[in-house]
Amino acid sequence: MDILNAFVLLANFVIVPALAYGSQLALGALGVTLIYGILRFSNFAHGDTMAFGTMVTILVTWWFWSMGISAGPLPTALLALPFGIAATALLVLATDRAVYRFYRRVKAKPVIFVIASLGVMFILNGIVRFVIGPDDRNFADGERFLVTAREFRQMTGLREGLAIKTTQALTVVIAILVVIALFWFLNRTRTGKSMRAYSDNEDLALLSGIDPERVVVITWVIAAGLATIAGVLYGLDKSFKPFTYFQLLLPIFASAIVGGLGNPLGAIAGGYLVAFSEVAVTYAYKKFFAYLLPERLEPEGLMQLLSTDYKFAVSFAILILVLLFRPTGLFRGKAV
């Protein structure tokens, strides 16, 4: 029984949250890695693109609320999500037209693209704060829990409860669906394959008659979709605050690099790796060991490896280790 309790405890505080967070990171990292694979630069504006998409979704959600539209037990934001994606897609296409296309034409160095993305980041950051303000926003509604801790205890008779928030379950389900759709698109459709071809060998893709501008447009639209979905899921699961989204850049980049920049499969693996490390390292294991160990061996401290304030350090440490020992990432990305 104690072993079961210990496991449930771990599931409740580490596995379930990390699965949800990992899915969010994976979606974010997929966007970064796609942009990297096709446009060949690290997009520093990605966090703020997520924030923008989430903001539009929140605004539409509020509008739905004011009209009395809701999604029943599911968060209304899901209904607003397509609007958010559409607005974000238009936004990134506009920035591509106004900013990046020029540098593609003059074949600028990647670092110039990165600096340009800093400028875009500033602007998006300003827009988001200007429109919705810099404060925390909670926009989750509908049924809060799929399973509450109390229900779980009654069901199983265990002392520990396992709570699964609707948003957590939704995050994982949506992430899986999105990833399946994305991989189907990349591996099975002509357009998807032409994107991979372009990412693989730009010159040969041109020789084969693949239109680079079309590939770029599709990439931006997909990245906008991924960013908005990731942002909305993160916001539903936790809360929406523009600055937090900016800070997500680090774990997202860490995920993409760990998996190998430009490699979509790697981005997903990287997302979960970073999320699990972050949650596992900052969890206080005192109670967990209390279940497993005899009473006299019970730990005194919190048994927490690192305080939650340092969760960014975990992404960073993983990043540094990968850069030191395997700079192309675990799944062999494009970049060295």
Partner: peptide, 8 residues
């Protein structure tokens, strides 16, 4: 050189 798509 570079006449194939290596990861396809």
């Amino acid at each position: 050189t570079n006449n194939i798509f290596p990861s396809m």
